[in-house]
Nucleic acid binder design. Structure first.
Length: 870
RNA sequence: GGGUGAUUAGCUCAGUUGGCUAGAGCACUUCUCUUACAAAGAAGGGGUCACUGGUUCGAGUCCAGUAUCACCCACCA
């Protein structure tokens, strides 16, 4: 046998292992034995950068579930891909081009820009794919997709055509969120709100034919250029008589009406609101309901338009300064107050949003969202954590029509055609350019210049990727699992449910699992500006992929944020090393091999029974936790079995009392159980143990046999005995080199028989107890050089040869008696409580009675001990 | 303004349907280089489970309220 290094070196084996997995073809479900299917369409990361720790975290969870299901005999598909990520990629790539060539997108031209961005994305996708492999994701690369792949895209665009046919899509001039920097419309979810200190300006509007004024309050005085009314609440008695009258709009010198609308808050500002339908969402609605004219005074570059009179051409901010100065001169600026309010900004570039009316494409979401809510409420998909279900349902409830057109260049163009003679009013919806205009027969057709909202295509990702290939849709849809960050709940998860329900009539996935965000040690988000990023690749280099995976999923519940820092990854690197060394020990054993099955005849000792029982119990629990999606708890359980039971006890005892078959059996199961979490090291150890069939496709342990309870208890007695002795030594500060004598007394021979079984005495002597000699049933004497301890019906006497302090021992025993008496008092009063006895389940009562009896016996023994001390 | 989550050991966090004296890792203290592992082993100290009520035989766990923090949503002129 080749000498293995003392320390596990992941860097030297991980790449080779991944290559073997890929070569095996088992990432492709077509090569797995037919069976029930399991599918997780992986969320496509944006193909414009590199993998960050958030991706690594998500991939780890997906891969853990994927591998678990594959080992459970499911035809498992993890389908990878990349997203073209419209606005974000355009922002990133424009910056890059500017830096590389000094050119702007306009200088390059639309067609060329699109081509170059496409190449850029493919290049990034290629780069990111290699990063994804480093994490160990067992995805089927032969099915990898990009949102702009022709087959996927065509499918998504067909949905547009179908929706249009069903009257769910309309084109209209409505108020939308406009980002002046990105020069595009945005949907509601792409707008962030940032609390900002601002000013509230009180402006006097002169009443028509009167010397009186009506004062309104506004945070954006420049929009007054487009005012077409003043609104007050109909219940507001202050303005009752003014409704229906007119005011003169200062600076523009036009007459605008005073209207009443219940949406006006009586308590805010002056109670009178200027209405600018073209530049404020609420004003737009009020304007629509009162048939007010819309005057667009801000253009798409955030500059004042011709309609703004002398302010035309100024930026909104410059116009504000000038307008305030002019109002001041006219004596119409009553006062200015400080006001904290929230400003809308672009999610991608943080530029202040200008609400403006614009011709855009919308999806009417009324029935779509209703269907989504129904599906969720009927339980057609389960959501983890469960409380996200209500958040999602509430969000759908408030969802407004979805603006899907963008004016950026990077993204698929609308399959909509205009004819030169028909103009913009009559258009044709068709995937292919029509040969002639169906309205007038004209030949001069041009395509709509709008591009789609990224979430329109990625919202169809699940079914479009599966429909792109053979029977995949039939086999895998609806998919089993979708795992995504909780930050994508509204952007993406909601759209997928809605769009797939529409396109296929079924939910896209049966389980929707949200991961939390990965934060730094102080709880901050990772960000470039903060410079607190943890690069997954660097961490893999340093600690190994398995350690990184473990640190990303441990100590965290679904949907809950978690913190990541190097010390944490280090502890799992240490654990991987532990696993390595357990195996290394096993491999040095004569005739050792991994054992798939054992029979009860193979269990020779109490220790064997114990470890096999613990293994069976752990396996059952871990499996159950997997099904409940509680992988962190599962891994924790597995870790304590591996370390605290198998390594600390069974492996230690194996050095004395050997049963290589059981040792091989437990290691065999352990490698399987760990594989979903730590695929690299387990696969490597599997191979080192001479296995030819890959662990990747080996079966998950189930229905492991249970064993004799008596034997298990017997081992636990030995275990307690050893711990007790170690304890006494440490308390009395006796170094291990100093040998002591152990005397075991019991009234029943049965209790002593456990120790007299083969090897047991040696086990006690060699497991760090420093016991040199063991005697049985010696007459009881005064405790002068000895310490007495009790375990059930067993009494332990440890001759410490004068190394004890009888006074200290006495204090300790008295303290223990008090403690026990206290506990017994509590327990017995509970057992005397009639309510408890009549209402608690029998099992609990039985348990507590047992504990009471045990503790009472213990108390008796300890009291005797005190006598012996005195 | 509405909502969600968090609050458990010095730090980072688990705690699955309420059940026996509440757990882990790191850090800390003492000891040990014992042939798988010092990235280790043995032993230990450290917590009125944020607060106040309630439900219950029994609450870290369920309910109500309070406080602090974080995040999300919102048509706050």
């Amino acid at each position: 046998m080749k000498e293995l290094p003392k320390i596990y070196q992941p860097q030297e084996v991980e790449n080779e292992i991944y290559a073997r997995w890929e070569k095996s073809g088992f990432f492709n479900p077509d090569n797995l034995d037919a069976g029930e299917s399991y599918c997780n369409i992986l969320p496509p990361p944006n193909a414009n950068g590199e993998l960050h720790i958030g991706h690594a975290s998500g991939y780890t969870v997906m891969d853990i579930f994927g591998r678990f299901n594959r080992m459970n005999g499911k035809k498992t598909l993890l389908l990878p891909g990349k997203d073209h990520a419209g606005i974000q990629t355009q922002v990133v790539f424009e910056k890059k081009i500017k830096a590389d060539t000094g050119k702007t997108r306009q200088e390059i031209g639309r067609e060329e820009f699109y081509k170059k961005t496409y190449e850029f994305c493919l290049d990034r996708a290629n780069y990111m794919r290699n990063q994804e492999k480093k994490i160990g994701i067992s995805a089927d690369w032969s099915r990898e997709k990009f949102t702009l792949d022709p087959d996927v895209l065509k499918n998504a665009l067909e949905t547009f055509v179908k929706m249009h046919g069903d009257g769910l899509i309309y084109k209209g001039k409505r108020i939308i969120n406009w980002c002046p920097r990105c020069a595009t419309a945005l949907s509601d979810v792409e707008v962030l709100h940032k609390d900002t200190p601002g000013k509230l300006y009180f402006i006097k509007y002169p009443l028509e034919n009167s010397a009186a004024f009506l004062t309104v309050a506004t945070t954006r005085p420049e929009t007054m250029l487009g005012d077409t009314a003043i609104a007050v609440n109909p219940k507001d008695q202050r303005f009752e008589k003014l409704v229906g009258k007119k005011v003169i709009l200062p600076l523009q010198n036009t007459l605008i009406p005073i209207i009443a609308d219940r949406r006006i808050d009586l308590t805010f500002g002056t109670g009178a609101v200027k209405i600018t339908p073209a530049h404020d969402p609420l004003d737009w609605e009020i304007g629509r309901d009162h048939s007010l004219p819309e005057i667009q005074i801000i253009n798409e570059q955030a500059l004042i338009t011709e309609l703004g009179g002398k302010y035309a051409g100024l930026s909104t901010l410059e116009a504000r300064q000038d307008i305030l100065a002019d109002l001041e001169k006219l004596g119409l600026l009553e006062k200015v107050e400080d006001l904290a309010h929230s400003v809308s900004i672009c999610e991608r570039c943080k530029t202040t949003i200008e609400p403006l009316t614009s011709e855009q494409w919308f999806i009417n979401v009324q029935t779509l969202k209703q269907k989504a809510i129904e599906a969720i409420e009927k339980g057609e998909l389960e959501i983890f954590p469960t409380n996200f279900k209500r958040i999602l349902v509430d969000w759908f409830g408030n969802m407004r029509d979805w603006c899907i057109s963008r004016q950026i260049w990077w993204g698929p163009q609308f399959p909509v055609w205009y004819c030169a003679s028909c103009g913009q009013e009559k258009y044709t919806v068709s995937l292919e350019k029509p040969a002639s205009c169906p309205h007038c027969g004209g030949k001069d057709l041009t395509q709509d210049e709008n591009t789609f909202d990224t979430w329109f295509t990625s919202g169809q990702w699940v079914h479009t990727t599966l429909q792109a290939r053979g029977d995949d849709f039939k086999t895998f849809y609806p998919t089993d699992m979708m795992i995504t960050g909780r930050d994508l709940l509204f952007f993406w998860a909601s759209k997928m449910i809605m769009m797939s329900l529409y396109a296929t009539g079924q939910v896209p996935f049966k389980n929707l699992f949200f991961t939390g965000l990965v934060l730094d040690k102080e709880g901050h988000k990772f960000s470039k500006s903060r410079g607190n990023g943890i690069d997954p690749l660097t961490m893999i280099d340093k600690f190994g992929a398995d350690a990184l995976r473990m640190s990303l999923i441990m100590d965290s519940a679904p949907g809950q944020d978690s913190r990541l820092y190097e010390e944490k990854i280090e502890t799992f690197r240490n654990f991987a090393n532990k696993l390595w060394n357990i195996s290394r020990y096993c491999l040095t054993q004569e005739g050792f091999e991994l054992v798939e099955k054992i029979s009860s005849a193979d269990l020779k000792s109490a220790t064997d029974h114990w470890i096999v029982a613990k293994l069976a119990e752990t396996t059952a629990q871990v499996t159950k936790l997997f099904e409940a999606k509680q992988i962190a708890v599962a891994a924790d359980l597995l870790k304590s079995f591996t370390w605290n039971e198998f390594a600390d006890w069974y492996v230690e005892i194996n050095k004395i009392e050997k049963n290589q078959k059981v040792l091989g059996y437990v290691l065999d199961k352990l490698l399987r159980l760990w594989h979903p979490f730590m695929p690299f090291i387990t696969e490597h150890l599997w191979t080192l143990n001479g296995k030819e069939k890959m662990l990747l496709v080996s079966s998950w342990p189930k229905n492991l046999q249970l064993t004799s309870t008596t034997e298990v208890l017997n081992f636990e007695t030995i275990q307690t005995c050893i711990t007790t002795i170690r304890n006494v030594r440490a308390e009395n500060k006796i170094e291990l080199g100093k040998k002591i004598t152990l005397t075991l007394n019991s009234t029943t021979e049965k209790a002593l028989a456990i120790f007299k079984a083969p090897f047991q005495e040696e086990i006690i002597k060699r497991l760090k107890t420093g016991v040199a000699e063991i005697n049985y049933n010696q007459p009881e004497v005064k405790l002068t050089t000895e310490v007495k301890r009790t375990i059930g019906e067993l009494s332990l006497y440890l001759d410490l040869a004068g190394a004890i302090d009888p006074e200290k021992e006495k204090v300790k025993v008295e303290k223990e008696i008090a403690n026990l008496e206290n506990f017994i008092a509590g327990l017995s009063s509970r057992l005397e409580n009639k309510e408890f006895v009549s209402k608690a389940p029998a099992q609990i009562i039985g348990q507590q009675k047992e504990t009471l009896a045990k503790k009472q016996a213990e108390l008796l023994q300890i009291k005797k001990q005190l006598e012996l001390l005195a």
